[in-house]
Amino acid sequence: MKILALESSATACSAALCRDGELIAQSFQCSGLTHSRTLLPIVHDMLDNCGESLDQVDVIAVAAGPGSFTGLRIGVATAKGLAWAAEKPCAPCSTLESMAWPLAYMEDRLIICAMDARRKQVYNALFLARGDRLERLSPDRAVSLEELGEELKNFQFSKIVVGDGAQLCYNTLNEQVPMTLAPVHLRMQSAWGVARAAEELVKAGALVSGGELAPVYHRLSQAERERLEREQNTKFTIEGDQKHV
């Protein structure tokens, strides 16, 4: 089984091609260019350099969330387009689980997956490394750094933090909850992790069609939050005016 995986949930962007769990190729870019400019060319060049085509791919996997709203939309839209054109099933992978898979070999370590969600929050999930598998200890969620720090005190395992929010977690929480940073080459999200997470979805029979594929944000966008705040303020103003009539 061949899996084409896409990762565009944060600053970096990557694509990977795997066959029966073995990495054939991966292309990674963190140049500051928008993913709308880089993702499709990366996929095209990688497949071309491998002598492969989209027709030979069995599953298209993508980091479906959480993550950057724009990055997720670009990744999911790209996967949908490729899947529809080639009539391929899709694997909507958790971004957080995907970033934990490259560390699964570190048996009995608590993997703290962290993406910077701004507003003193991180997108986070906790996993226990089991060598050839992961044991999920929490759902994907948006959580404050303070809440995460308190929760981590309950775990006695050695802790390692991974993701584009790893440095933020380390700088904020390391004094109260000792942890180590994942090695630099494994710290950022990568398409290989997405491909590995997709294998689990294949086993679970959890693939979807291109039409069903959708991003999972876990939090309202800034624009939506601001709109709700304006509506709430307008409601209070109207109610206040009515009391004085």
Rank of each mutant, 00 (worst) to 15 (best):
Q222Y: 06
I111Q: 10
S158D: 14
A63P: 02
L128P: 03
A129T: 11
T78M: 12
S94R: 06
R37Y: 00
K2D: 06
V76P: 06
F127H: 13
G21C: 07
T11G: 01
I60A: 02
Q167L: 13
M99W: 09
L201Q: 14
F127I: 05
S14F: 02
T234A: 15
I111F: 08
F236H: 13
Y123T: 07
A16S: 13
R19S: 14
M99A: 08
E151M: 14
R187E: 08
L23W: 05
E175W: 04
P89I: 08
A25K: 05
T237K: 14
R130E: 15
A83P: 04
A223K: 06
S31T: 13
L213Q: 07
E199T: 10
M46G: 01
S221H: 07
L47E: 00
K243C: 01
A104S: 15
R37I: 00
M46I: 01
Q121A: 10
A129D: 11
S27G: 03
P92V: 12
S31A: 12
G149A: 09
E224H: 11
V59K: 02
F69W: 11
A214W: 00
C113D: 12
S27H: 09
K153F: 10
P139R: 09
M106K: 13
Y170A: 06
Q167P: 00
L39K: 00
M188I: 03
A114N: 10
E224T: 02
M179Y: 09
R118M: 07
S27M: 02
G71C: 05
G163R: 05
P178L: 04
E150V: 09
E226I: 10
V216T: 11
S158A: 13
G193Y: 01
K243W: 04
I74F: 01
I42Y: 00
M46V: 02
Q56S: 15
A223D: 08
L181G: 08
V194E: 01
F155Y: 15
Q156C: 12
A198M: 06
T180Q: 15
V245I: 09
C113S: 14
E200Q: 14
L39G: 01
E52R: 00
E212N: 09
S9Q: 02
L82I: 06
K2M: 14
R37A: 03
K120A: 14
T180A: 13
M188F: 13
V184A: 15
V43I: 15
F236M: 14
K203I: 09
A63Q: 00
L40A: 10
E199I: 11
K2T: 13
V57N: 00
E229N: 12
L72T: 01
V194A: 08
C50A: 13
E150D: 14
K243T: 06
